[in-house]
C-alpha cells in the first residue's frame, strides 16, 4: 500500500486523534477545491478524502448530493479529478483517498483508472456502493495492475455481523471506515451513545486502524470517540460550511480569509 497512508498511522498523533476530511472535487470549481485540499493539508488534516461527483449518490444526504450537483454543473469528471490530484501532489504529501460511486469509474475503464490513479498519487479508494463481498474481482484486478499502491478502505456498518467483519479480518492495508450509525451521510441525527461499545466490540478481529465517520461535527463527539478509534471523518459538516461561504458572494480575497477560519475550526475539532 501507499507509504503515505501507512506513515499516518505510525506517526505520533497531533491532537486527540487523527482527522480525515472530505470535500467534493470540483465543488464549486476545480480551482477552489484544489485550494481547499491544500489548505486542509496545511492545517493538520491527516488524511484527505476527495469525492468524485455522481448523479445518483444513494448513500449520501442532501449536503453531499448538492455538492455533487454543483460539481457536475462545473463539468467535473473522473479525468479532471485525477488532474486535480496531480496538481495537489506537486506540493503536498498528505495521503489522499478518492471516494466514488462505481459507475463513473467503470465508465472510465477500471484497469486504466487504477493505473492513472496510482500515477497521479492517489493512495486508495472508498467506494460506497461496493460492499466488501462484491469487491473481490475489482481488488484482484487492481493488484494485478498496480500492486499494492492503492488501498481499498473497507466499511464496517452498525448492521455488520460477525461474518461481514470476518471478511475484512485479513486486510492489512489502510483503515476500516466504521459507520457511526445506519443511514446516509450528514444530517442532524445524533451519533448513538453505544458507538464506542460497538467499536470496542470489534476488538482484535481487525488488523487495521479504525476511523469513524457519518454525522461528526462537534469537538465533544471527537473527544468521546478518540478513546476507541484511530481517527474521525468529517464530511458533510465541512462541505456545508464551504458551501455557505460560496453562496455568500464574497470577493476572492475575503473568501480565502474565511476559508482559513474553516480550516482553523476543523483543526480545533481534534484539539
Amino acid at each position: 500500500m501507499s507509504e503515505r497512508l501507512k506513515e499516518v498511522f505510525k506517526r505520533e498523533i497531533n491532537g486527540v486523534t487523527r482527522l480525515v476530511a472530505y470535500i467534493m472535487a470540483g465543488d464549486p470549481s476545480p480551482e477552489a477545491s484544489l485550494r481547499r485540499l491544500k489548505g486542509l493539508a496545511d492545517h493538520g488534516v491527516d488524511i484527505l478524502e476527495l469525492g468524485v461527483p455522481f448523479s445518483d449518490p444513494m448513500a449520501d444526504g442532501v449536503v453531499i448530493q448538492a455538492a455533487a450537483e454543483r460539481s457536475l454543473s462545473a463539468r467535473m469528471t473522473v479525468k479532471k479529478t485525477l488532474e486535480l490530484v496531480r496538481e495537489f501532489r506537486r506540493t503536498h504529501q498528505t495521503p489522499l483517498l478518492l471516494m466514488s460511486y462505481l459507475n463513473p469509474l467503470l465508465r472510465y475503464g477500471w484497469d486504466q483508472f487504477v493505473v492513472d490513479a496510482a500515477e497521479v498519487g492517489v493512495d486508495g479508494f472508498i467506494l460506497p456502493d461496493l460492499p466488501w463481498r462484491e469487491g473481490e474481482g475489482l481488488r484482484t484486478r487492481t493488484k494485478n495492475r498496480v500492486g499494492n499502491k492503492l488501498a481499498f478502505i473497507p466499511m464496517i456498518a452498525q448492521t455488520s455481523r460477525e461474518q461481514d467483519v470476518q471478511a475484512v479480518s485479513q486486510v492489512t492495508e489502510g483503515f476500516a471506515y466504521v459507520l457511526s450509525r445506519n443511514g446516509i451521510t450528514g444530517g442532524e441525527v445524533e451519533i448513538p451513545a453505544n458507538v464506542s461499545q460497538f467499536i470496542e466490540s470489534l476488538g482484535n478481529s481487525l488488523q487495521i486502524p479504525r476511523c469513524v465517520g457519518f454525522g461528526i461535527q462537534k469537538p465533544q463527539q471527537v473527544r468521546a470517540l478518540a478513546n476507541v478509534c484511530d481517527g474521525v471523518v468529517v464530511g458533510s459538516a465541512l462541505v456545508k460550511t464551504f458551501a455557505k461561504l460560496d453562496q455568500a458572494g464574497l470577493e476572492e480575497q475575503d473568501l480565502i480569509l474565511q476559508e482559513k477560519e474553516v480550516f482553523t475550526w476543523l483543526a480545533s475539532l481534534k484539539k
Binding site: 460506497p128 456502493d129 448492521t159
Partner: peptide, 12 residues
Amino acid sequence: GGAYVPETLVPA
C-alpha cells in the same frame, strides 16, 4: 446483477 449497495444494507 449483483448487490452493489452500501455495506449497511448487506446484512438486510
